[in-house]
Amino acid sequence: MAERKEVDARGMACPGPLIALISALKTVEVGDEVEVLSTDRGSNKDIATWLNKAGHQLVESEQLADHIRFLVRKLR
């Protein structure tokens, strides 16, 4: 069964949510999901661009009161 890993990158300036996401994807299996919580506006915009280039799926993204939540599925 697909698993879900959570990465709470809120308030983490470095390495930032996208690097945390790429790192987390390396530790899960194809089909698994990674949920990233982020407050770093700088690399938030990169997440969708990178997923598109690297061939993974953005299942959901949600703007919450003080952070954004991304749900990503590893496809390859």
Partner: peptide, 10 residues
Amino acid sequence: YPIGRLHGLE
């Protein structure tokens, strides 16, 4: 660099 800028720290 892995992300869309030259370093994790903006």
